[in-house]
């Protein structure tokens, strides 16, 4: 019984060995046949941008593997070359990690995505009736009680993203003299779940939301108007102003260009804008279309934009 089995194994190994060798001839621009690993983060936008890039890379004959990856693993994986490129990295929340990764000399910036991230304080429409004076931030202090919860007592609750997202909101609340207590959720899902629940119940809620994102599209509301951002406001350590907006960038492993010159060119040129990103995220999360369909649609409609990117 042993002999035929081992012969089968050898045959199988031979097929595996021959297959990739036989397909090498189809390559146009000298990219390696090994698949390029890209990461998808757990938000919808990341799925869309990465899918579009993967489809475009397919057009130049490259294989792509997309892997779901926790945010914490993205940077070590990039530095190690396990992950070859990250298409959507938010400098608004991850500036420290980006700087550290670039400083290692093992990660390159592949340019901006053209998208700008903005972090602001948000409240639903119906709160305006209960708290006249909004969206100006001065109004918040008088209605702090509206936003109070069991955990915050008499103070209003300001619901924030995880501590690792930064934002200096503790200092901001203190400098502005607001009678609010900062409460941090441990994950995006937990924050959005509370926003949705409050929205369903018509309860007042004040939370940090950001754009481009589906939540401000699905839930009707407004942003608090804080004093405009200045460098001085941040360098003084008072943070009594808006958060600065941050470009969303693309990062790649240093070894990428040597093995995938054509793909690197494409990745460097790829850009989107906030309006179309918003529309696509809305199509998936609000209208319920599939990520794949939305990405294909964008590619069909914007041939003029991506044809120079894929040109050899």
């Amino acid at each position: 019984m042993r002999a035929p089995l081992s012969r089968l194994l050898i045959l199988g190994a031979a097929i595996f060995a021959v297959c990739p060798a036989g397909t090498g001839f189809a390559l146009p621009a000298g990219d390696s046949t090994k698949p390029i690993t890209l990461n998808v983060a757990d938000w919808t936008g990341s799925h869309i941008t990465t899918t579009i890039v993967a489809k475009l890379l397919g057009k130049i004959g490259d294989n792509v593997i997309t892997v779901p990856l926790d945010g914490a693993a993205v940077f070590p994986a990039l530095e190690n070359g396990d992950l070859l490129a990250a298409v959507e990295v938010w400098s608004s929340s991850q500036s420290t990690a980006i700087a550290a990764a670039l400083a290692t000399g093992r990660v390159n910036k592949l340019g901006d995505t053209g998208l700008i991230g903005r972090d602001r304080w948000w409240y639903p429409d119906y709160v305006k009736a209960q708290c006249p004076g909004l969206p100006d931030w001065h109004a918040l202090d008088h209605c702090a009680k509206l936003f109070a919860t069991l955990q915050t007592g008499n103070k209003g609750q300001l619901l924030l993203y995880p501590a690792s997202w930064g934002g200096h909101d503790d200092e901001r609340v203190k400098s502005l003299g607001l009678n609010f207590q900062v409460v941090r959720t441990g994950s995006e899902a937990a924050l959005l779940a509370q926003v949705k629940a409050a929205y369903l119940r018509h309860q007042p809620i004040l939370a940090w939301l950001y754009e481009p994102h589906w939540a401000p599209q699905r839930f009707h509301g407004e942003y608090v108007q804080l004093p405009a951002y200045t460098d001085a406001c941040y360098s003084s350590g008072r943070f009594d102003c808006e958060k600065p907006s941050g470009p969303i960038v693309k990062l790649g492993f240093v070894g990428l260009a040597a093995v995938y010159p054509h793909a690197t060119k494409l990745l460097e040129q790829f850009t989107l804008n906030n309006a179309e990103y918003d529309a696509m995220v809305g199509a998936v999360d609000v209208d319920g279309k599939s990520v794949d369909a939305v990405a294909s649609e964008w590619i069909e409609q914007h041939k003029d934009r991506w044809s120079p990117w894929v040109a050899p």
Binding site: N39, D42, W43, T44, H47, T66, V67, P68, L69, D70, A73, A77, E188, A189, L192, W214, D285
Partner: peptide, 17 residues
């Protein structure tokens, strides 16, 4: 969380949305 797709990832993505 470490890059393997499958049902676990479906759960995470769905709940994020």
């Amino acid at each position: 969380l470490v890059g393997a797709s499958g049902l676990g990832n479906d759960v995470l993505v769905a709940l994020q949305q």
